[in-house]
Computed example of a mutant assay.
Amino acid sequence: MDLKELLSSFAQITVFAVMLSMGMALGFEGMGRLWRRPSLLLRCFVAAFVVVPVAAMVVTRVLPLTFEVRAGIAAMAVIPGAPLIYRKMLKGPGDVELAGSFQATMALLSIVLVPLWFGIISAMYPNDAAAPLAVVFKQVMLMQGVPLLVGAAIAHWLPDLADDFNEPLNRISSAMLVGVVLLVAAMGLSLVLKAGPVPILAVVLMAAAGLLSGHYLGGSDPVTRQTIAVANASRNAGLSLALVTLNFPAVAHEVLVTIAAYAIMSGIASKIYTRLYQKQLARGAHPQDAPGF
């Protein structure tokens, strides 16, 4: 087993553990938070599965990018719901439960929509990409859908077991998730710096598309708007890496560079956005001084 396969396997196990922990923490009640607001749910769906993927299609068509860069951008664009976002909200401004519900909802919708988008990508680039829908469906289902629903079922029917095991599982899965992020950054950062301005511009535009679509479609409530914006910009690097490695092993290393670049640049962009928006809210008593978004 080479380093790429090892990292992919570790990413798959990590995503499974994180989703299981999240399912136990949220339960069916927390997971359904977004579903109890149909209008917001629809807007989140549009932001995550329509605006960002379409923006990716435009960016990859307009900019002169290699197939490997296009594949990395496409993978991140069609897979929302980064496992890290729920934990980010625990330490900063935002609605933690709403972020968890967004992530869980996007994970469940991904079971159908990610294979669909992979099929569209394969049709657009028949000579470069081939990912059977049934295979991608099974991969996403096993890594996200099954552990999330099992975790919620344990919380609902075996609450004592969930109370005993969720905290240690949360700690272990969080450490594993940090490990994946560090490994991706360590393997990709040096290459990202050498990638050149055009690929960097592409991932910056993608991060901006995620933030802006989440911001404007997140509604008028400041906390909800900020939560959806940051959650929408944070795509699922672990699942993207696993799917690309499983379905396109020949270009996995090169695609890793783009995934690492997006993870880094979207994190920076989210911090800048959060700081600017918090400053705007702090000046809310003087609307004429507040910049618009």
Results as ranks from 00 to 15, higher is better:
Arg171Cys: 14
Leu116Tyr: 13
Val140Gly: 03
Ala82Met: 06
Phe137Glu: 06
Ala162Pro: 03
Ile120Phe: 10
Ser122Gln: 11
Ser174Phe: 10
Ala153Val: 14
Leu90Lys: 04
Val114Ser: 05
Ala129Tyr: 13
Ala77Ser: 03
Asp164Glu: 14
Gln144Asn: 13
Met106Gly: 03
Val69Leu: 00
Val150Arg: 05
Ala153Thr: 15
Asp160Pro: 10
Glu167Tyr: 13
Ala155His: 09
Asp163Trp: 09
Gly81Arg: 14
Ile111Ser: 06
Leu116Ser: 08
Ala77Asp: 03
Ile154Gln: 08
Ile73Asn: 02
Asn127Asp: 15
Val146Asp: 07
Val136Pro: 00
Pro132Ser: 06
Ala104Val: 08
Trp117His: 04
Ser122Ile: 02
Asp128Arg: 13
Asn166Ser: 08
Ile120Leu: 13
Ile121Lys: 08
Ala152Asp: 08
Ala107Val: 03
Val96Pro: 05
Pro168His: 02
Leu133Cys: 04
Ser101Asp: 02
Pro132Asn: 00
His156Tyr: 10
Leu109Ala: 08
Asp95Gly: 08
Met106Glu: 09
Val78Pro: 04
Asp128Trp: 11
Met143His: 02
Asp163Ile: 12
Ile85Arg: 09
Pro80Trp: 13
Met143Phe: 03
Tyr86Val: 10
Ala134Ile: 10
Asp160Cys: 13
Ala104Cys: 05
Ala153Phe: 13
Leu161Ser: 13
Ala134Val: 12
Ala71Gln: 06
Ala152Cys: 11
Gly92Arg: 10
Lys88Glu: 12
Phe137Asn: 04
Ile85Met: 13
Met124Cys: 12
Ala162Met: 02
Pro83Arg: 00
Asp164Phe: 14
Trp157Asn: 15
Gln144Ile: 11
Met76Val: 10
Leu84Ser: 14
Leu169Ile: 02
Ile120Trp: 12
Val135Pro: 01
Trp157Gly: 15
Lys88Gln: 15
Leu149Tyr: 12
Ile120Gly: 05
Phe102Pro: 04
Lys91Leu: 09
Glu97Ala: 00
Asp164Lys: 15
Leu158Met: 15
Leu113Asn: 01
Ala82Leu: 05
Met143Thr: 07
Met76Tyr: 06
Asn166Arg: 11
Gly81Asn: 12
Asn170Ser: 10
Leu108Asn: 08
